[in-house]
């Protein structure tokens, strides 16, 4: 069978089986052969929950990999200034455009005149192929490109697996419900008052001094991590009383790291802090159990609360 193989003449079921057996990189490479093939791959609807599209704005790279990181493909978005093309450059169709592409051992380099447009087009192409969520790399929160691109991704109603943002960006992202795991870097800014109109599934806040009890009591996340918090014993008492009364209905895990949590004589649920260590607490209707764990590191008291349904 040396003559070219008429792949698209095969029935859809067969094509789907063929696509399924290809690696992440092979699927992407094949999707760039033509718009028709790309459409067929999209029709195959790979609900690939194990594929992670990881966007790294600083190195202008999109890394697509499996959960175990064994199947990896990298796409670099490069400025199209014409000079960097060579004899291996090929023009490939992506999102209604035909752009120059160079093949490298770990993936491909795609040349685009406008960076953000390139990122958006490639991301959309990938999400159609893999039907998966997107992760935004932790080192990109300070990139200028970041803000406008993420905002556009939100407008496209895409779902995020992990998203790392600066606290000041909160106002831009209107629906955090589409984010599975939100990580917020907070820089001191007394002028800025964050407002949450919706919550992600999980939230991690680094330097969470601004995240007061009022914020926490309205939080509907399942997992909450608060680092460098200013919450104290009285707040813990309030949190636990609230939980016992049916508050935090989704909560599975809460982690608070704070210098203000200390064995200072004040009581939490009627006992002093140290007596909370390893304590099993049931809520008022006895449907859930909360177990506390205490530890100290670098002068910060850390309390973890794990909730299980009884």
């Amino acid at each position: 069978m040396s003559s070219p193989f008429p792949l698209l003449r095969l029935p859809g079921v067969i094509l789907c089986e063929v696509f399924k057996s290809l690696s992440i990189g092979e699927k992407i490479q094949l999707s760039l052969c033509s718009t028709k093939i790309s459409t067929q791959i999209n029709n195959a609807q790979f609900y690939s929950h194990n594929v992670i599209v990881n966007q790294d704005f600083l190195s202008h790279k999109i890394r697509i990999h499996s959960e175990n990181n064994k199947d990896v493909f990298e796409i670099f978005i490069c400025p199209d200034i014409g000079k960097n093309h060579n004899s291996n450059t090929q023009r490939c169709p992506i999102a209604c455009c035909t752009v120059p592409v160079i093949f490298i051992p770990t993936g491909i380099k795609i040349f685009w005149k406008i960076y953000s447009e390139g990122f958006l087009s490639v991301i959309q192409h990938l999400l159609k192929v893999f039907q998966c969520k997107i992760s935004i790399n932790i080192n990109c929160y300070c990139s200028n490109l970041f803000q406008q691109t993420i905002s556009k991704l939100f407008d496209l109603q895409l779902e995020f697996r992990t998203l790392t943002i600066k606290i000041q960006h909160l106002t831009i992202y209107n629906n955090l419900g589409r984010v599975e795991d939100l990580r917020i870097f907070s820089l001191p800014d007394p002028e800025f008052i964050p407002v949450f109109t919706s919550w992600p599934q999980k939230i991690t806040i680094m330097n969470s001094a601004w995240f007061t009890l009022e914020y926490l009591l309205t939080c509907t996340c399942t997992r909450i991590f608060l680092e460098d918090s200013l919450l104290g014993n009285e707040d813990l008492d309030e949190i636990l009383k609230n939980w016992k009364a049916g508050g935090f209905p989704n909560l599975e895990y809460l982690y608070i790291e704070s210098q203000r949590i200390s064995d200072n004589g004040s009581t939490i649920l009627g006992v002093n802090l140290l007596k909370l260590r390893g304590k099993h607490i049931k809520n008022n209707d006895r449907s859930k159990k909360l177990v506390t764990k205490l530890s100290t590191k670098f002068g910060f008291e850390r309390i973890e609360m794990s909730v299980t349904v009884v």
Partner: peptide, 11 residues
Amino acid sequence: TQEMIKVITLP
């Protein structure tokens, strides 16, 4: 992609 295009016929 380049090598794949040589292997398959695009209808």
